[in-house]
Simulated scan of single mutants.
Amino acid sequence: MGIFETRITILALRIAQVILAIVVLGLTAYVAHWWSNYWHAMSPSQINFLIFDAVWTMLVLLYLIIVPWRFDYSIANHIFAILTAELLTMIFWFAGFIALAVFLADRVCFGHVCSAAKAAAVFGAFEWAVFVGTTVLAARQIIRARGSGGASARGKPDPNLNIQEGV
């Protein structure tokens, strides 16, 4: 077992995901608030989508942390449900930070609000990268379990991406 597949490493990645989501939520909320106060209009959809991404991530992380830990072999604790949650969240973050980066590339942008929007795009990219890592770990675990005919081959994951000690 590699160092990137220990329970402590997975927990550290989950903590990083929560922290990055909170940072992006704060930055995009600031930009959305400024936009509605200054322009008296709704904030751009790119900002709104990153707000959605951050909230979605916090809900998915609750699922990804609590369900495998508390519910041993229920339908909610299926390895493909875990992989689907990881994959969807990874795709959402990719779409969100790219959309905001493209939006900011076409604008004359200066001041604190512009810096906050650019920082939100950068932190969104970091969040995407961390989700790529955890999605790859989840997919590798499915492939490994399928090859060995383990419990995960029948859709019964262990906590923290079905990492089995000694495998």
Rank of each mutant, 00 (worst) to 15 (best):
I51A: 08
V108T: 14
L27I: 08
A151I: 11
S148L: 12
C114N: 10
M90H: 06
M58D: 09
T84N: 04
R14G: 11
A76M: 15
N48Y: 00
I79H: 01
M42L: 14
G96N: 06
M1W: 02
G96C: 07
A151N: 13
C114E: 12
G166V: 07
L59T: 08
F131G: 02
I143P: 02
T9V: 13
S152P: 04
K156Y: 12
W56G: 02
P159C: 14
S74V: 07
A81L: 06
C109D: 15
G155I: 02
G124P: 06
V102T: 07
G150P: 03
Y30W: 12
W128G: 02
W39M: 12
F110C: 12
L137G: 01
D106G: 12
G166R: 05
A153R: 10
T134C: 05
S43H: 10
F131D: 03
A29N: 14
I75G: 06
A125N: 04
R7C: 09
A117P: 04
A32T: 15
F4T: 13
Q141L: 04
T6N: 08
F4E: 13
T84A: 13
G111M: 07
A41N: 13
I51D: 05
S36V: 10
R144Q: 00
F110N: 14
V24Q: 02
G150H: 03
A101C: 03
T57A: 10
F126C: 15
A125Q: 02
R70T: 08
I15W: 06
I15H: 03
R107F: 11
M1R: 12
A139M: 14
D158F: 05
G166M: 06
A138N: 03
W128F: 13
R140I: 08
L50H: 01
I75K: 09
I66R: 00
V55E: 12
W93L: 06
A54F: 01
L83K: 00
I47T: 03
D158V: 03
A120F: 01
P68G: 06
Q17Y: 00
W69C: 05
N48C: 04
